[in-house]
Amino acid sequence: MKIFISPPNSLILRDLVKEGGHEPLTMMREIKKKVTKSGLDSPPLNVTELDPEKGLKYASNEVPSGVRGRMAVIGPMIQKADAAIIVKNAKYSFGCVGCARTNELIEYLLNQRDIPLITVEYPESEEEGRKMIKKIRNFLDDLDD
């Protein structure tokens, strides 16, 4: 099954999903398609005028461009997903790497889709870490059934 992970660039989540025998939908894979595409449309990162258009499908014109830009990549991933794992309050999901409004929009769009979904808190201790791994593993095992 194709599993959407949030944060979409998470190393830990990607690894857990892959080990669980599913296909993780990650930001890295989408970025790879852009930056390694032969014949550069718009060097160095291949962001073309078509990307904001894709983003407009998920966020309106008034929404900050950062949200629309992110949604241009993340939106189609949400559409493809058969299930999703959301880890809330990850430190890096807000600040120089992430975007809080995009995270809210991702959560909203995933809730709109009728797919299996699990929401867990980002672990801050060893015990919380163990619980998170267990919950995610159980979720992935249940998907197999």
Partner: peptide, 13 residues
């Protein structure tokens, strides 16, 4: 822990 990387190794960007 293993994950993909979008950019190739030693990519100038």
């Amino acid at each position: 822990y293993i994950k993909e990387r979008g950019f190739p190794v030693a990519d100038k960007r």
